[in-house]
Design a protein around this nucleic acid. Structure first.
Lengths: 206, 206, 206, 206
DNA sequence: CTATAAACGAGACGGTACGTCGCGTCTTTGC
DNA sequence: GCAAAGACGCGACGTACCGTCTCGTTTATAG
């Protein structure tokens, strides 16, 4: 079991720069063309790379776009604004700001649409994007408990289901308002939304 | 002054049966193939119609799928279960049931993704699907007010914004749980969600 | 003198003006577009006539074009210039003048090309165009015999074969020079051609 | 300085076998279907080649057919039968034999018809077919001069015009008899034609 | 300092679907 | 009862990308 993650086989190694360039080119093309008019040949050209190189690393358009978009969501951070409500409002605004970027909008939705009929793709999205951001809900709750805004877990078994519910409600509402209703996620909306969410959670828990 | 909406122009009129057959064929193809593998040529064949007939009526895949999917949502009805909470739970379950159907899942999401870069398409979706279902929120509120579960409008100016918020929260959460989280919208989830939503609204209004 | 040969059947009679307009429109379209880009729909529009009317009278593009082009060749007349050579030169120049008109060039050749695989079309061309112009050869010979430039028929059996040979040589040479070699059929060429033709005929007959 | 005409550019080279297969398939399709029903898609299928490969090499039906047909005429050879008349008769029969082949008939005429409105196509035909066969006339004359059947050039300036005239007369008459009159080019006709032609030339030159 | 082996750019390849165009037929309304 | 208008089924068009496959050319490490 001496083999490393990357076996340094003989032959020319893959260019690391190519990966970066391809992902950047993908985001650029998403912005300019949107998902449906994005072509792998065009991405390859923008990246200054042959189509072959691209196919050597990704199986297709979907996989490429997931990777290109996933990193955008890693920018999210839970701000410490003193109160739970303010923290939630802050992170919701950040999330909305990412969704306002065209590469995220077109890429994310299209890839989710494709994932409906593609189990492997759904898994990839889940790992790369969704699950990774639940950290924000967990950290938010922990911080609120530390502050005394929330009681410690009363029903530990339900904890994870509540996290999921919150995540679906937050992400769902913001996505729906942004992409379907096509309305701005401004401070006022965020305050109203946060009030309903936290008020409802308090009422339901109590 | 009895003239109808359609001026009966000269020449052979368009076959009404063709429209029906095409939309049905579109839904059938969505189920079997999903959005990305759906072909207009294939839809035409299934409908027993020439490709040109299809293009004479719809500008492209997107417009066709919007129309094919829109009617699914007209099935939604607000059940009268005696209490607001029960009514909401009922309609959320109905909504989830529609989203569980593959023609709705693949069609809806993909078309929303495309609408990001296509203003006309977004408008079409909004008119054909979104706005038409806000009736459910309005009727639910009216019924609850008749029952005395909700007070009459205190801030009439905010009423429409509250409808929008509710709609984004309900539709967003169900869609996110179904399509992104890929978890079932079962009775338990619906109850927890409804409790948070109504509790939050009550807290925020009060 | 208003009633013609056609029995005025019940119902609306066919418009005679339509035929004229359609054939004129066909020639016009041949000039502008050439054979391959000529469409029956376009001809109908130019003629101010419905496509149906056109199909009621002609079986297709080929038949229509034959009729449209055939009349051009009826203009040909054998001029009386005093000598056989001069007469031949005159008619050859006339023939070349017709072939110089684009509607004749494109229409005629294309229709001949089609006739290769279409027996009925070949027959139609033969009757409408070829056979009708052999009168020129016959009349020319008769006139020359009257003048004493040619002897009376010595081998009556060969007469028709000689007519055919002359027709093939004249029409063939002019067509080939015009359409394949794309060289002008000017006075000089006509004189040289006529000299060879008549000289050869004299030598062969003697 | 050994570089060849073809610069061996980067990338996968074009398959030479494809060219051969496509041209053969074109001739085959011409025989079976004729010009107007010949489809580039069908040719591609017959050749076992993708339609795109075909379009990568030829601009359209016309260009393809010119190339496919041109080679047929390279078979023509001036037989040495001892006398000028016999030589001419021999080559005329060969020419007629080629024109009797359906791939030549339909292809050639249609392409000539198209060339009327297409300068580039006319040029292509001229280079690939017409000009290349004038060698036969030149060689025939040279051989006859060597035999003493013809005198050396008396008017060198007229020589090329005479070649053109002969070519138009020979090719024109044979083509007209074959394709327009639809009569066989048999020995008898050839002898009569040759007699007129050579007799006329002798008379005109003398 | 080779030799070897993989990655690279370029671009041709067999495919599939596209959206359009013209054909020839049919089904309306209107004169 | 024919004509105009135009929708219809059909089939070919020429194009665009797909994902794969040669090619000739780097560029690392292994011997």
């Amino acid at each position: 079991m001496q083999s490393r993650t990357t076996a340094p086989r003989s032959g020319r190694p893959r260019s690391a720069a190519a990966d970066t360039a391809i992902l950047a080119a993908t985001r650029e093309a998403l912005v300019e063309l949107g998902w449906s008019k994005l072509t792998l040949g065009d991405v390859a050209t923008r990246a200054g790379v042959a189509k072959t190189t691209l196919y050597r690393r990704w199986a297709g358009k979907n996989e490429l776009v997931v990777d290109a978009v996933a990193v955008l969501f890693d920018e999210l951070e839970l701000p410490d604004c003193g109160t739970l409500a303010a923290d939630v409002e802050g992170v919701v605004l950040q999330f909305a700001a990412i969704l306002a970027r065209p590469e995220a909008r077109s890429g994310l939705m299209a890839v989710v649409a494709e994932s409906i009929r593609d189990e492997a793709l759904r898994e990839r999205i889940h790992c790369s994007i969704v699950e990774r951001q639940k950290r924000l809900v967990l950290e938010g709750r922990a911080r609120a408990q530390r502050r005394g805004e929330l009681p410690p877990e009363t029903h530990p078994g339900q904890a994870s289901r509540t996290v999921d519910l919150i995540f679906d409600m937050v992400a769902g509402a913001v996505i729906h308002r942004t992409l379907v209703s096509a309305q701005p996620v401004d401070e006022e909306w965020v305050q109203r939304f946060t009030a309903v969410l936290l008020g409802g959670l308090a009422a339901a828990e109590g």
